[in-house]
Design a protein around this nucleic acid. Structure first.
Lengths: 234, 234
DNA sequence: TTTTGTGAACTAGTTCACAGCT
DNA sequence: AGCTGTGAACTAGTTCACAAAA
């Protein structure tokens, strides 16, 4: 147990561990060692032990970790014992899709509404039935539904404006899909998913592999990418 | 110019530089220094010079970088002078949305088709008019449309199967939204976007800030997160 | 003078390796 | 014997700081 600042790399891995533990629990597995977990993720077992050790001593020497117990701890650590109400800002293609994306509805996350500045999108319903409200209702919605997370899915030119609006309404956590650099207040947590950047990283690699066909041993020695083809599953 | 393996962190930044250069070019700016670029991204200017130096000497001492020239170089480096034909696997909420997401249609990326295993989704059209084909057409589609990138947007239990199928069809670059660990062949580039993990990292921070209200100076000393509130824009 | 390109220094993140508990 | 928790060693990534070019 340290008093260190936890890096995002660590918290992201904790999410993966949790997901894995849920599967193990469903499968009736009672204990798991850091080594077994590591094999699932192509990680080093010390990495896993270190990640967990930031938050306490959850393991038993000679045994490993008790699956339900560690799962409980991770849920607590990640704050997933609470309910999170999510607002989507921007009801275009992406916003609407995210509203319907089933992956969000497990755990304590619930998408309660969308807002959009275009009158014609307002009063439409998302695929799963959430209503779309005009942007002017933002503050009221946040209060009424106790919203604590916003997903930004507006066009680039409205990015900063949308951020400012949700911040003013009291939201302090953002999942951002807008490919624009924005001013983010100190006390506001934002993670950005930039799909274009991800696609371009694929283009980069495709262009390389076309250009230099077969230098297999040299290629991709250490890109931080996946080492591949060992213990699969998730 | 080095013969080093380029990290994904670097290539991702190159995409951002390119985006910024496009804006500068539109604004009629002729030259830009690494310092000016750095200010846009809350980066260190040496970082930018190093990133670029991996690929050549594009700058002019005492001047900076010529915007159109550097832009041209970055397009070449990232392989964006070529056309990329994209196939979306899985025509559920997310798949359909990604098909309609305008952000993909700039640069050389073009979504040419979707496939889905469910007969009832087949023959539907995506929002922007791409047809949905049955999975058995995959190989034929890849050949016919010269597809080189696949986006995986299937349910978790079909993830590996979908990956195997597109690999067999000849695709070597994947943008993966499936939250499952998969076996990826050596010569296949995959970037994974795990939305659940991102949301959970927000939950983590929200849970912290609720728990310990006001330790402002200590908080977030170095999480690799954004330093905030300096030169904005994108 | 200004700003690049880059070795050297530093910081963050990962892995090793082992003492210590069960 | 087996496996955790952790300091030490290592590797990757970032920033400093400066010689060299324009």
């Amino acid at each position: 147990m340290k008093a260190v600042q936890i890096s995002r790399l660590t918290t992201n891995r904790l999410s993966l561990y949790l997901r894995c533990l849920s599967l193990l629990q469903e499968a009736g597995v009672k204990t798991v060692s850091s080594r077994e977990l590591a094999d699932q993720f192509h990680l080093n077992s010390a990495q896993i032990r270190k990640d967990l050790a930031y938050f306490g001593e959850f393991g038993v020497r000679g045994v490993g970790y008790y699956v339900p117990e560690l799962k409980r701890h991770l849920i607590k650590i990640l704050g997933l014992h609470k309910q999170y109400n999510v607002l989507i800002v921007g009801a275009g293609n992406l916003g609407m899709a995210l509203a319907g994306y089933q992956g969000f509805y497990t755990g304590g996350f619930r998408i309660v509404a969308l807002v959009d500045s275009s009158e014609e999108r307002v009063k439409a319903l998302s695929g799963t039935g959430q209503p779309v409200y005009p942007t002017r209702d933002l503050k009221r919605l946040v209060k009424r539904h106790n919203i604590n997370i916003a997903i930004l899915a507006v066009p680039p030119q409205s990015g900063q404006q949308a951020l400012d609006a949700v911040y003013t309404a009291g939201i302090r956590a953002l999942l951002n899909f807008v490919p624009v650099r924005m001013k983010v207040p100190e006390d506001c947590e934002m993670v950005t998913v930039d799909l274009k950047v991800q696609l371009e990283s694929l283009a980069y690699h495709l262009a390389r592999s076309d250009a230099s066909p077969s230098r297999d041993e040299k290629r991709r020695k250490r890109t931080g990418a996946r080492p591949v083809a060992r213990g699969a599953r998730g």
